[in-house]
Design a protein around this nucleic acid. Structure first.
Length: 257
DNA sequence: ATGCCGGGTCCTACCCGA
């Protein structure tokens, strides 16, 4: 099982990049975030021509997640259970692909909207932890992958790339990430690259990529059974050097399932 | 200290991203 997660910063702006990448990498599943459109505007036909089905949880202008798959999948959830009514945004899609459960997530950034915006980020991450606990209780192998909008540790950002008050590095955000690890989940990329700079995002501004002022914020967390099957995990850094790229690159995970 | 890019939309100045 080869799966990948990629915040594409608008699927309509990035459809040809995604199509080319699917042909080159041939993943079984591709988890997309920030598609920035409703389901009706998602270019599903472009990917159907390559043999990929699309499940889409869309929203106008902001957010939006989708899963492209070669094998058929069964949708298990189109939102994260447990969030307050009226707080729904298109940020979660969970499917079953054979016996593996895959949750595709786009966590709130938390830097806009003042303290209320940050509180929403923490509430969302709390609901994600509850979902992880429920999946562990279900005793199915699973992957929760996507844009967590958290640099888990100091090694996960270039020096000076963000201030200490940034929502991506605030202690409360990091604590929410550690809580997922303490439940028993494995950070796939960090498990296989314990010391390396394995950034997944570089800002468009100030020549951040050329200066390698990156962040590691896109993660794949694995259940214990999935972690036993982990064979490879890496960001595809080369994508960031292309013309009109997303500011995030794909993160690829291979499991011997 | 500010804006630096780049996507979106009420089409055009502004919101959001991280």
């Amino acid at each position: 099982m080869k799966l990948a997660t990629w915040n594409v910063n608008s699927i309509r702006a990035r459809a040809e990049h995604v199509a080319r990448w699917l042909e080159a990498e041939a993943p079984d599943l591709l988890l997309l975030q920030e598609i920035k459109c409703e389901a009706a505007a998602f270019p599903a036909e472009r990917f159907a021509g390559l043999g990929y089905r699309a499940e889409v949880v869309g929203q106008k202008s902001y957010n939006g997640v989708a899963i492209l798959s070669r094998p058929p999948v069964v949708v298990r959830a189109r939102a994260l259970p447990g969030l307050a009514e009226g707080a729904e945004q298109a940020r979660y899609l969970e499917v079953a692909a054979d016996r593996l459960v895959v949750g595709n997530l786009y966590a709130p950034n938390g830097n806009s909207g003042g303290e209320a915006g940050f509180a929403y980020k923490l509430a969302w991450l709390e609901a994600l932890a509850a979902r992880a606990a429920a999946l562990l209780a279900e005793d199915v192998p699973f992957v929760l992958a996507g844009d967590y909008n958290i640099c888990p540790a100091e090694a996960d950002l270039a020096a000076g790339a963000l201030g200490p008050e940034d929502a991506l590095v605030r202690p409360e955000s990091r604590s929410a990430f550690r809580r997922l690890l303490w439940l028993g989940l494995t950070d796939a990329v960090r498990a296989l690259h314990p010391g390396g700079r394995v950034f997944t995002f570089w800002d468009y501004q100030a020549r951040a990529f050329e200066r390698d002022l990156g962040l590691r914020i896109d993660h794949a967390l694995l259940s214990p059974a999935a972690a036993e099957a982990l064979r490879a995990a890496r960001p595809d850094r080369e994508e960031r050097a292309r013309e009109q790229p997303s500011d995030h690159v794909p993160v690829v995970v291979e499991l011997a399932l």
